[in-house]
Design a protein around this nucleic acid. Structure first.
Lengths: 167, 167
DNA sequence: GAAGATTGACCCATCAATCTTA
DNA sequence: TAAGATTGATGGGTCAATCTTC
């Protein structure tokens, strides 16, 4: 059988293991220092960066790589916590915007330096400038190569365009 | 605030997004072509590779990056499916081995080429030999740099040594 | 009492079905 | 009828408590 070689498998295994561990560490840091789960942080980052600080539920689901229904429930929790507010879209009343609230921006302001410090400490600090650039290029290239994943029915990213994870 | 720069954030975002997408794709390929979830595959790979084709529950949990309780339930399902069998450890009767069955090895034999093809197609094929080597080194170095994660109570990897994800 | 593993309660995500508006 | 979003049922994971054996 045509198959991948050992060096590639070693790289793949390291990639997987590193991802599992580093997300665990970042999650825990954010949780203990700011008391917020990483999923919340991701949502707040996306909304803060969006025009008018709001996004349609569908776009947000795509951005944070969650199913539509998953996002509905996540926004439920964020709204209950007062960090996000739902606003119905006036031009198309089927649609709903999720908008970050002042309290949400305040939380984000507290969380961002913690998370960025984590990314720096557990990732960026160990890469040379050249490596950083190369890793960015490489993974963007790999993403582009994944066949525009003709996603499953409930999945939000049929549009397949813009998603950008936490930063 | 001292913080990570934009190039590093771009690399980080690409890393995260690629991981989310590629695991999704591999998961779906394995599911549709062999009818087995990726978690099952990971367990079978670990057991097949282990001495006597079996591992203590704790070691297995560590290897597949799952909590002890999570692994208990996963092995429950695998045992129900006949792919794995529990054997009590004769020398220390507190302990339990999970051992791959003939049926499990057969399943693995069917699954492995599918999964490896996926890794090749969506990962290895896009890397030069030099890049493959560099990615492997880089992530292994990053793993080593993560403070030996003094893990949470229930987490299996207090031993922190050997875990190797799916291959 | 501590270690290995399991169990019960709970959290969060997904899928399929549903409701509403276009 | 289709599109946007939500809801109900369910799968699979974690934590804390428990059981068994050392």
């Amino acid at each position: 059988v045509i198959s991948v070689n050992d060096e590639a498998l070693r790289a793949w295994a390291a990639f997987l293991r590193y991802h599992a561990w580093v997300t665990d560490v970042l999650q825990e840091e954010l949780e203990t220092e700011v008391g917020m789960p990483l999923t919340w942080y991701d949502v707040l980052v996306q909304l803060e960066a969006a025009p008018d600080h709001r996004l349609r539920m569908q776009e947000l689901a795509c951005a944070v790589v969650l199913s539509k229904s998953g996002l509905t429930r996540l926004v439920d929790r964020l709204e209950r916590a007062g960090l996000v507010e739902r606003m119905s879209c006036p031009s198309d009343r089927r649609g709903t915007f999720a908008e970050i609230t002042p309290a949400g921006r305040k939380q984000l302001k507290a969380a961002r330096p913690v998370h960025r410090r984590g990314i720096d400490e557990h990732f960026a600090a160990h890469l040379s400038e050249r490596q950083t650039h190369e890793v960015g290029d490489l993974f963007e290239q790999l993403i582009a190569a994944l066949r525009p994943p003709d996603r499953e029915p409930d999945r939000a990213d049929t549009s397949a365009a813009s998603p950008l994870p936490s930063s």
